[in-house]
Amino acid sequence: MSLRGQRVVVVGGTSGIGFAVADTAVRDGAAVVVASRRQESVDAALRRLPAGAEGQPLDATDETAMRAFFERIGAFDHLVYTAGESLLMASVAESDLAQARRFLDTRLWGAYAAVKYAAPVIREGGSVVLTTGTAGRRPLPGTSVAASLCGAMESLTRALALELAPLRVNAVSPGVVRTDLWREMSEEDRAGLFESSAATLPVGRAGTPQDVAEAYLYLMRGGYSTGSVVTVDGGGLLV
């Protein structure tokens, strides 16, 4: 149950959960390619990742760029998609529809395009692991866009698992995790979020990217999971 000798592409792999997945996969023996919109982000990630990683810039909202990216990459074993801007939180009345569409362009349609152009070059026995979130099953006020995305990603995962079989397609659903996705909140609000989560979660703390990365590796390694959504939320859906 190792990724040794396999090739993993992580779109969104230069920060947060994506970086943790890339780092863990390299340490497990995989050759990893990380992709992100900005070249400087790719360069910074490669300086931190162990030997065995490479990277390229990629705008996940540009279908032409996505197609060209996978044509350059060639055959590989596992696609992980974690790309996304900071979480969009606003009431329906105060929402900016253009901003909401951009949010979905990266997280939903970017994932869709990545699968479309990656699937033909994923080797036999390979997999796709997408990213959703617990807002789809436990939304809060102000999370209508995020909740809509999460519901869509879970449905997309199940549909692709059937359509692309025997290629395995799964998703990971993180809860509150200490990443840059919360950067639009003030430092005080972020600290309050993590503190309140720690107080209510059964595990007694907010999650880290490394906590969640293990779920992605499990889904890549395990040959009997497809159409599954693995929740890693410290027990948040229970309380």
Rank of each mutant, 00 (worst) to 15 (best):
residue 174 P to N: 07
residue 47 R to P: 05
residue 9 V to N: 05
residue 135 A to C: 07
residue 102 R to G: 13
residue 158 R to C: 03
residue 172 V to P: 02
residue 225 S to A: 15
residue 170 N to K: 09
residue 191 A to K: 13
residue 141 P to I: 12
residue 117 Y to T: 05
residue 70 F to M: 06
residue 2 S to R: 09
residue 52 G to H: 01
residue 4 R to N: 13
residue 159 A to Q: 13
residue 196 S to N: 13
residue 56 Q to D: 12
residue 60 A to R: 10
residue 226 T to H: 08
residue 100 A to T: 12
residue 93 A to Q: 13
residue 103 F to R: 06
residue 5 G to L: 02
residue 199 A to W: 00
residue 221 R to K: 15
residue 185 M to R: 12
residue 14 T to M: 07
residue 217 L to Q: 05
residue 66 M to A: 06
residue 232 V to D: 00
residue 113 A to V: 07
residue 208 T to V: 08
residue 65 A to M: 02
residue 232 V to Q: 02
residue 138 R to W: 12
residue 222 G to V: 14
residue 204 G to M: 01
residue 190 R to H: 11
residue 79 L to E: 03
residue 182 W to K: 01
residue 88 L to N: 08
residue 170 N to A: 03
residue 223 G to P: 01
residue 138 R to G: 10
residue 147 A to T: 08
residue 35 A to G: 06
residue 199 A to R: 01
residue 239 V to K: 03
residue 208 T to L: 14
residue 55 G to M: 02
residue 43 D to F: 07
residue 168 R to I: 04
residue 176 V to Q: 02
residue 84 G to W: 08
residue 9 V to P: 04
residue 15 S to F: 09
residue 104 L to T: 10
residue 211 D to Y: 00
residue 177 V to Y: 09
residue 55 G to C: 02
residue 73 I to V: 15
residue 222 G to H: 14
residue 227 G to E: 00
residue 65 A to N: 00
residue 32 V to M: 04
residue 105 D to P: 12
residue 186 S to D: 01
residue 178 R to Q: 14
residue 91 S to I: 11
residue 54 E to A: 15
residue 40 E to M: 07
residue 6 Q to N: 10
residue 73 I to G: 09
residue 6 Q to Y: 04
residue 57 P to R: 10
residue 161 A to F: 11
residue 145 V to C: 02
residue 29 G to V: 12
residue 168 R to N: 01
residue 65 A to D: 00
residue 60 A to G: 10
residue 21 V to S: 01
residue 88 L to C: 04
residue 51 A to M: 11
residue 2 S to N: 06
residue 76 F to P: 02
residue 98 A to G: 15
residue 79 L to F: 12
residue 64 T to D: 07
residue 105 D to Y: 06
residue 198 A to H: 00
residue 174 P to T: 03
residue 69 F to Y: 03
residue 2 S to C: 05
residue 202 P to T: 05
residue 9 V to D: 03
residue 233 D to G: 04
residue 216 Y to N: 00
residue 173 S to F: 07
residue 103 F to G: 08
residue 183 R to G: 01
residue 159 A to L: 13
residue 171 A to M: 04
residue 148 S to N: 10
residue 7 R to H: 14
residue 233 D to T: 06
residue 31 A to F: 09
residue 224 Y to V: 14
residue 145 V to I: 15
residue 71 E to Q: 13
residue 191 A to T: 15
residue 37 R to Y: 09
residue 69 F to L: 06
residue 181 L to H: 10
residue 80 V to P: 04
residue 184 E to C: 06
residue 77 D to K: 05
residue 97 L to N: 10
residue 197 S to R: 01
residue 161 A to L: 04
residue 122 I to A: 06
residue 162 L to G: 11
residue 201 L to R: 00
residue 66 M to L: 14
residue 53 A to C: 06
residue 22 A to T: 01
